[in-house]
Design a protein around this nucleic acid. Structure first.
Lengths: 259, 259
DNA sequence: TTTTATATGATTGACCCCAATCATATAAAT
DNA sequence: ATTTATATGATTGGGGTCAATCATATAAAA
């Protein structure tokens, strides 16, 4: 029996919220709470997962920013993803001691994950405004972890806004690892005003600023400019120099780290 | 073939760390990464779960602070736990609009979860230093959520320290909901210096301060004093007035909210 | 009103997860 | 050195999970 579209959409929104609330939700539980059959629960799950921020697991579903889910790649035996390769390259730039900053975004989350593979963390401090990165690094023994305060942005699971900017205070970072949504001849762009503004505010605090963007971001135009190439210490990307040149991005060798 | 005890312990520690790092780990993945059979992986999983902070799910395991796992109670049809009842009572004290503060701790996390059951969040702002609370409330549409910055404390998944104190800035809370580790005739105590110091710093920012402690905290002595009864607007607890009196805690009716 | 599209629940077969059991090898105890 | 205890992997039966298929009822379109 067919059901009105708006009812379906409401129920799926409810499902999204339930998963988010509980962190993990078994399928049977979804059926019970939504009052639907397993078949419908699975269909809803598939729809919600397609919209992002939710990952299905055997027997249930998981709110995305709880889980880094590197495993999906590794398990399927696929080649290490572009993001993972970028992350390894980025971690190679992280000094053994000192203070670094990690931005929000899945690419930087991959950096955080790769960083956990190190052995000794004595003397290293990490500052972040990403709850995902904080979650990943929170369990690492010996690492000093700080989170910048700010207003919580739902989509990015990050802390932004004026309070985040002022929380930068007198922090001084030996290196900052930042994400972007697009890159063009002029520099890095981001999709949200809040993010771009925060990144702009952050740059003066960082001795070196590394932007980590995979090749899919090439030529993509997003509205808010985050940084000019002159402000970038190096771009860490899997895109070839040729592909970059085709998008009018020409960087000196010292500013391009190929992953 | 038997294996030395310290090897086993090391491997289980590794498993704990892996789960914590990934948030969620399927059993097959555990086998691969630990290089053991499924049987051993499950045995390790059982051991690690017994030590706490890890919850098993169908097909894998979950880091605890990712998941509130209310469902366990509800599904098994058990009576609502003391924490959940305290949480409901606490939510009843939260105004429809205004600004409130939520502390770290599992009891307050229950408050956050209970709060999500509300319908309309327009005009309500929540400030917290708890990553768990932020995770739970992050997905709630219409709610304005802020996280205080600070140093990340592993055990509490909370942000504390001098930077957290200064992040309080000029915030003014209509109500603050705080947790404690113990209570005695003099007031509330906490186990960590950082936490007690932060709570002391917070109190002047709150018009009303509600402490939420279940009955197991009665008479328990922990080293750091967080608040005197004179600073407490009300105690929300499941302990009976008689039990409180037996521990030399006598509060005027207006200061005691029984859950 | 008639037609079309689709949301739903039931069913089914394949696959996966799990606890229990057992034999074995080897660490710990004596 | 001998005995005991236990960590391990293989196996197995039971049950849970999943995707695909199908009939049906009803919303949406014509």
């Amino acid at each position: 029996m067919r059901v009105p579209q708006h009812i379906v959409d409401l129920r799926r929104e409810e499902l999204r919220s339930l998963i988010r609330r509980d962190g993990f939700l078994p399928v049977v539980e979804i059926c019970r709470r939504l009052g639907v059959s397993e078949a419908t629960a699975r269909r809803d799950l598939a729809a919600v997962e397609a919209d992002g921020h939710i990952t299905r697991t055997y027997g249930g579903a998981l709110a995305d920013y709880n889980s880094s889910f590197d495993s999906v790649d590794e398990r399927s035996g696929r080649a290490r993803s572009a993001k993972a390769r970028i992350a390894r390259k980025a971690v190679a730039q992280i000094p053994r001691t000192g203070t670094i900053f990690l931005d929000a975004g899945t690419t930087i989350q991959a950096v955080a994950r790769a960083l956990t593979r190190r052995r000794d963390f004595a003397g290293l401090a990490v500052v972040t405004n990403s709850l995902s990165a904080a979650t990943v690094l929170g369990g690492v023994a010996g690492l000093e972890l700080h989170v910048l305060g700010g207003q919580f942005l739902n989509r990015q699971a990050a802390l932004m806004g004026a309070r985040a900017v002022s929380a930068l205070g007198d922090w001084k970072f030996d290196a900052a690892f930042l994400a972007g949504e697009g890159m063009d001849a002029a520099g890095i762009t981001n999709s949200h005003d809040h993010i771009a503004a925060f990144q702009q505010a952050l740059l003066p605090h960082a001795t070196r600023a590394y932007f980590c963007l995979d090749a899919t971001k090439l030529g993509r135009a997003t509205p808010h400019r985050a940084a000019a190439w002159s402000q970038v210490s190096a771009l860490i990307t899997d895109a070839s120099a040729k592909a970059l040149a085709e998008n009018s991005i020409v960087l000196p060798a010292a500013k391009l780290l190929r992953a």
